Computed example of a mutant assay.
Amino acid sequence: MNVDWKIIRKYIPLLQQLVLRDLKIKYRRSFLGYLWSLMNPLLMMWILTMIFSYVFRFDIPNYPLYLITGQIVFGFFSESTTVAMSAVLSNAGLLKKVYLPKFVFPLASVISSFVNMLFSLVAIFIVMVATDVSLQPTLLFLPLGLVILFVFSLGIGLALSSLSVYFRDMFHLYGVLTTAWSFATPIFYPVNIIPEDLRYILYYNPLYYILDFFRKIILYDTVPDGSDIMLCIAISCISLVVGISIFRKLQNKFVMYI
């Protein structure tokens, strides 16, 4: 995987403008603006906690924190990859007029979603305070988890953004896939309710390991062991390598299809 850092540095001002544009568009004409990044996960957590704690009675210690951690991690992945998928097509007019490295558009989309998620992380700390969970040294691993999640999502986003140029059905298929993926990831349910003969679905789900990393350091006050860390890093790196490879292979003919 050869990443031309000189090109990335050269186009940092463009990346900044694209990220700011995406953030402004997301909250344009919204009265509460960026507060929705904080309120959305809290409101959804409250609703789902009522449903799954009292109706279905999932017996999970500190279910609100368990739930909101899963919501924010999967929510960022879903949002960032979805917006990255349309990044090249939505900037087709600009690409036809001037030469720009095409990867900056999906990269900017993932970065803008990442900035949005950073606001949402405040919701996790609010729930920690509300449920009497003290801040532990394990939270020092949070930046590493965020980098792993960002890199994994960027790799998927790069692949989707290039494939969607040639196959517009990707927009419809990916919506179905993310819904199925959310149910295959223990966001709101405990792992132990999955029958043993179906648990292999979790083991082939890369987001399961990344989400487990976050829950260990936030909810369970546990330092992930070396094998867990290396596995998550490997998952994110493989995603990025595959994403860059697909993007580079397909990008030369983008102009013919956009």
Score class of each variant (00 low, 15 high):
residue 124 I to C: 04
residue 131 T to H: 11
residue 116 N to C: 01
residue 133 V to Y: 04
residue 150 F to M: 02
residue 113 S to Q: 06
residue 123 A to I: 03
residue 146 L to T: 01
residue 163 L to I: 15
residue 154 L to R: 11
residue 177 L to G: 06
residue 115 V to L: 13
residue 113 S to H: 06
residue 150 F to W: 00
residue 171 F to K: 14
residue 147 V to L: 15
residue 131 T to E: 12
residue 125 F to K: 03
residue 172 H to R: 12
residue 132 D to E: 11
residue 179 T to H: 10
residue 154 L to D: 02
residue 175 G to N: 13
residue 133 V to K: 14
residue 111 I to G: 09
residue 176 V to W: 02
residue 125 F to R: 05
residue 161 S to T: 01
residue 152 F to T: 11
residue 135 L to E: 03
residue 174 Y to P: 00
residue 118 L to N: 07
residue 124 I to W: 09
residue 133 V to E: 09
residue 175 G to Y: 03
residue 180 A to W: 02
residue 167 F to K: 02
residue 139 L to H: 10
residue 171 F to L: 13
residue 153 S to F: 06
residue 120 S to F: 07
residue 111 I to F: 14
residue 169 D to Q: 07
residue 171 F to R: 13
residue 130 A to G: 01
residue 143 P to M: 08
residue 135 L to V: 15
residue 159 A to K: 08
residue 132 D to Q: 13
residue 149 L to A: 06
residue 152 F to K: 11
residue 110 V to P: 07
residue 138 T to K: 10
residue 126 I to W: 02
residue 111 I to R: 11
residue 168 R to C: 00
residue 162 S to F: 05
residue 118 L to C: 12
residue 127 V to F: 03
residue 115 V to S: 07
residue 115 V to E: 04
residue 161 S to Q: 02
residue 170 M to Q: 02
residue 176 V to N: 05
residue 172 H to K: 10
residue 115 V to Y: 11
residue 109 S to V: 01
residue 108 A to P: 01
residue 161 S to I: 00
residue 149 L to G: 04
residue 169 D to G: 04
residue 160 L to P: 01
residue 127 V to G: 01
residue 126 I to F: 12
residue 124 I to V: 15
residue 108 A to R: 07
residue 124 I to Q: 08
residue 180 A to I: 15
residue 135 L to F: 14
residue 116 N to E: 14
residue 118 L to T: 09
residue 136 Q to H: 15
residue 151 V to W: 01
residue 158 L to R: 09
residue 147 V to Q: 05
residue 180 A to C: 12
residue 142 L to E: 01
residue 136 Q to V: 11
residue 141 F to R: 04
residue 148 I to H: 05
residue 164 S to V: 09
residue 139 L to T: 07
residue 152 F to G: 08
residue 159 A to F: 08
residue 139 L to A: 12
residue 149 L to D: 00
residue 113 S to C: 13
residue 148 I to Q: 01
residue 154 L to V: 12
residue 134 S to Y: 10
residue 152 F to N: 08
residue 157 G to F: 09
residue 156 I to R: 00
residue 179 T to K: 15
residue 151 V to M: 06
residue 175 G to T: 03
residue 174 Y to Q: 11
residue 108 A to G: 09
residue 145 G to M: 00
residue 133 V to G: 00
residue 159 A to N: 04
residue 120 S to M: 07
residue 126 I to E: 02
residue 126 I to V: 14
residue 143 P to V: 00
residue 135 L to K: 04
residue 166 Y to E: 01
residue 166 Y to H: 12
residue 171 F to G: 15
residue 163 L to E: 05
residue 111 I to Y: 12
residue 113 S to P: 06
residue 175 G to H: 05
residue 129 V to P: 03
residue 130 A to Q: 10
residue 126 I to Y: 04
residue 140 L to T: 13
residue 136 Q to F: 07
residue 145 G to V: 02
residue 180 A to K: 04
residue 148 I to Y: 03
residue 152 F to P: 11
residue 153 S to P: 06
residue 123 A to H: 04
residue 144 L to S: 09
residue 176 V to P: 00
residue 122 V to P: 03
residue 123 A to C: 01
residue 174 Y to F: 15
residue 116 N to Y: 13
residue 164 S to I: 02
residue 116 N to G: 09
residue 112 S to D: 05
